[in-house]
């Protein structure tokens, strides 16, 4: 492990001040599952590590025009939270697929966003729910849609002195159903070969009012498949229609070939799983009506 000085601010303001002061030389730590691994491999060598765990303002889940989730909420707490299960079942489901119970118990939702890893399970779920990220600097606060948050491989729009404080999940449309599929052809504890989160809202006449499709492990960043969404808007929610729209996902993705599959295979699997997730979400939406 690389050496560093650990700082533990008691308030968000104090944390922002420390981050502003140390900037390039500092890293924020919440659960640590991402950062500690990188520091142990000596790939990241901050002089200062700023621990966020004592900041009360970053904890907690509340319901107010949807859900407000403190950045420090652990993945495990979200998986089992009654509030999340009721108002954002897609997030609870995605959280249940994250790694193992130990990682879920340590890792936080804010950390999962700031880490910028395109293979994670929670970003596509948040994108499919129109989630937003609240981030703050000493200069002020901004709200960023999750689908515009990621800029490149392990890259985000966050400024050096900016801290993710909250995740917002708006009230989900009435009559909507969701699905999360994580394709794991090797073992059950693995990064996804591809993961898909979908949400379908049906209108009174049974046609698709609005669709959301997001993918993980399908490009350098978590992606939203807007072409698929657009193709489904106002259409019937039968399997044929959903299946015809699914192949449009290939324009939104750019998978990386690795030992989990060739780029071509991952593209094909994206199509299959987008279709399956849409079918599942549509079925749930019909039930919900």
């Amino acid at each position: 492990m690389v050496p560093f000085t650990y700082l533990e601010p008691a308030s968000l303001d104090e944390a922002l001040a420390l981050l502003a002061e140390h900037g390039e030389d500092a890293k924020l730590i919440a659960g640590g599952t991402g950062l500690v691994n990188l520091m142990k491999q000596r790939l990241v060598r901050p002089d200062f590590v700023i621990g966020l765990r004592a900041i009360r303002a970053l904890a907690g889940i509340s319901e107010k025009d949807g859900l407000r989730i403190g950045a420090l909420a652990t993945i495990q707490s979200l998986e089992v939270s009654e509030l999340v299960r009721r108002h954002a079942p897609l997030l609870a489901e995605a959280c249940g697929h994250v790694a193992t119970v130990r990682v879920r118990s340590m890792a936080t939702l804010g950390g999962a966003m700031a880490h910028g890893d395109p293979n994670l399970d929670t970003p596509p779920a948040l994108i499919a729910m129109d989630g937003q990220i609240v981030a703050r600097t000493r200069r002020g606060e901004r709200t960023i849609p999750v689908d515009r948050f990621f800029t490149g491989y392990f890259g985000t729009v966050l400024e050096r002195d900016e801290i993710v404080t909250e995740l917002l999940i708006p009230k989900q449309p009435a009559g909507s159903g969701t699905a999360f599929l994580k394709f794991l052809p090797a073992t059950q504890d693995d990064y996804a070969t591809v993961s898909v989160a979908t949400r379908i809202a049906l209108g009174a006449d049974g046609t698709i009012r609005e669709a959301r499709v997001a993918l993980g492990a399908a490009a350098m960043v978590p992606v939203r498949a807007r072409m698929v969404e657009a193709a489904l808007s106002g259409k019937a929610s039968d399997e044929k229609t959903l299946g015809d729209a699914a192949p449009l996902v290939v324009d939104a993705i750019d998978p990386i070939a690795d030992f989990r599959g060739s780029a071509e295979y991952k593209r094909e699997m994206a199509v299959v799983h987008v279709r399956r997730a849409l079918v599942e979400a549509a079925a749930k939406a019909k039930e919900a009506r």
Binding site: G32, K40, R53, Q76, T100, R102, V103, D189
Partner: peptide, 27 residues
Amino acid sequence: CGVGVCGACTVLLDGTPISACLALAVH
């Protein structure tokens, strides 16, 4: 494994299982 995968270092922190190989002692 040292990377939080194998679970050999599992301990309970306030009753919750965590990987002691990925946890800072200060935490």
